Simulated assay, not measured.
Amino acid sequence: MTSHTPPPVAPGLDDGALTVEGLSAPAAAPEGAPRVRLIACGALAREILALIRLNDWTHLDLKCLPAQLHLRPDLIPDAVEAEVRRARALGDFDAVKVIYADCGTGGLLATRCAELGVEMIPGPHCYSFFDGNEIFAARGDAEMTCFYLTDFLVRQFDAFVWRPMGLDRHPELRDMIFGNYTTLVHLAQVEDPELDAKAEEAAARLGLAHERRFTGYGDLAGFLARAG
């Protein structure tokens, strides 16, 4: 895979806000070209926008739901359905694609997407499709003791790991939660030394070894290339 430098932050894209939504590709699609609405997790906004711009996929229009839905995966199917219905009501799109993996919904999101007749990106979670679903599955039991972070989760480690798990208030929970883990694996989408340093710091805070694995955009790139 080729490396990628971090894309500039898009207007309205603020990881720190944790409510990344309503983002669109900056240019209009060529006249007569199909328009595709992507309904995606806000944790993927930066990577999707980078791929849209890199490949000039101006027929793709991005709508991101709040990234903090990851903390309540039971809410994801209803939130996705509402956006699918909203996109169809607009009448501006020829197709709708869902850029969520299962993400802890226990198959409920896949069932809902099938009922709605929309395609969703395959995979149990974004760690898998960034690594490549076939590659990730092949690792199997060999990585049962690994804890994964994407670039987004490295940036938002405190907001999505440290505080939700109560480690800021009860540090004694660390060994109870992570005692059976051995390694924090940073699945890196871009080459960014600052992110690498943050991932190493996160591993140290959790008492885990650190491993960096460059994945690029994995299966996400292929899924977007086929959207249309």
Rank of each mutant, 00 (worst) to 15 (best):
P11R: 00
P11V: 09
P11A: 05
P11Y: 03
P11N: 11
G12C: 06
G12E: 13
G12F: 09
G12R: 02
L13Q: 04
L13F: 10
L13R: 06
L13K: 02
L13I: 10
D14W: 10
D14C: 13
D14Q: 11
D14G: 11
D14Y: 13
D14A: 14
D14L: 14
D14E: 13
D15Y: 15
D15W: 10
D15H: 15
D15R: 15
G16P: 11
G16T: 12
G16C: 08
A17R: 11
A17I: 12
A17V: 13
A17E: 13
L18H: 14
L18I: 11
L18K: 13
L18D: 03
L18E: 06
T19N: 14
T19R: 15
T19W: 13
T19V: 14
V20E: 03
V20K: 03
V20H: 01
V20M: 06
V20P: 01
V20Y: 03
E21C: 14
E21S: 15
E21W: 07
E21Y: 11
G22Y: 08
G22K: 05
G22V: 12
G22L: 11
G22E: 05
L23R: 01
L23Y: 00
L23Q: 04
L23V: 03
L23P: 00
L23K: 01
L23N: 00
L23H: 05
S24Q: 09
S24Y: 04
S24W: 03
S24M: 08
S24T: 14
A25Q: 06
A25T: 04
A25H: 09
A25I: 07
P26C: 12
P26W: 10
P26M: 10
P26E: 14
P26R: 09
A27G: 10
A27S: 13
A27R: 14
A27K: 15
A28R: 14
A28Y: 10
A28G: 07
A28S: 15
A28I: 01
A29M: 06
A29G: 06
A29I: 00
A29V: 04
A29D: 04
P30C: 07
E31C: 09
E31P: 05
E31D: 14
G32F: 09
G32A: 03
G32D: 09
G32Y: 06
G32W: 12
A33Q: 14
A33R: 12
A33V: 05
P34C: 13
P34K: 08
P34V: 08
P34G: 10
P34A: 13
R35M: 05
R35P: 10
R35C: 08
R35K: 14
R35T: 08
R35H: 10
R35D: 05
V36F: 07
V36G: 01
V36Q: 00
V36K: 01
V36R: 07
V36W: 04
R37C: 12
R37Q: 03
R37D: 11
L38R: 00
L38M: 07
L38K: 01
L38A: 05
L38W: 01
L38D: 02
L38Q: 03
I39S: 07
I39Q: 07
I39C: 05
A40I: 00
A40D: 04
A40R: 00
A40L: 03
A40Y: 03
A40M: 04
C41Y: 04
C41G: 02
C41P: 03
C41H: 08
C41S: 02
C41E: 01
C41Q: 06
C41N: 05
G42Y: 02
G42Q: 03
G42E: 00
G42N: 01
G42F: 02
G42C: 04
G42D: 02
G42T: 01
G42W: 03
